[in-house]
Amino acid sequence: MNKAHPSFYLISNAVDGNAGAIEKLLEFYEPYISKCCLRPFYDEYGNVCIVVDMELKGRIREALLKMICEFEIDEPNK
């Protein structure tokens, strides 16, 4: 099943530090991150192919992890 966004429950658990939820959140965004990291690569013959820049992908995953750790969920007024 392809969802448009991660559930509140998943985000809440990830923010609370649940390692499984954090991994599921990273898996959710994996295709988007990979697509953002596509770069042209030229071989020694001048041929071009599109590859995933793994260094950039690692930096984006690191930034996402940092955002998850710093994210705060506001509780509604009672």
Rank of each mutant, 00 (worst) to 15 (best):
V51G: 01
D74N: 13
L65M: 12
R59L: 03
V52D: 11
A19L: 09
N18V: 07
E62I: 00
D53S: 11
K57E: 12
Y9H: 06
M54W: 01
N18D: 15
L26R: 01
V51A: 05
E27M: 02
A21R: 03
I11E: 00
F8Y: 11
C49Q: 12
S12G: 02
E27I: 00
R61S: 04
V15D: 05
E62D: 04
F71G: 00
E23C: 01
N47L: 04
N2R: 12
G20K: 11
L38P: 13
E55C: 00
L10H: 09
L56H: 11
S7Q: 07
E55P: 00
M1C: 06
E70H: 04
F28A: 07
D43S: 06
A21L: 07
L56E: 09
V52C: 14
A19G: 03
A21H: 10
P31M: 15
K35E: 15
C49Y: 08
I11L: 13
E70M: 05
M67G: 03
D74R: 02
N13S: 06
I68A: 05
I33C: 04
N18K: 14
I73R: 00
Y42S: 04
E70Q: 12
E62H: 02
N13G: 08
D74W: 10
Y45I: 05
A63H: 12
M1V: 07
R59V: 02
V48C: 14
I60N: 01
F71R: 08
L65P: 00
R39D: 11
E23K: 11
A21E: 11
S7A: 08
S7K: 08
L56A: 10
S34H: 09
M1D: 05
C69L: 01
S34L: 15
D43N: 15
G20V: 14
N18F: 13
L65S: 02
R39G: 03
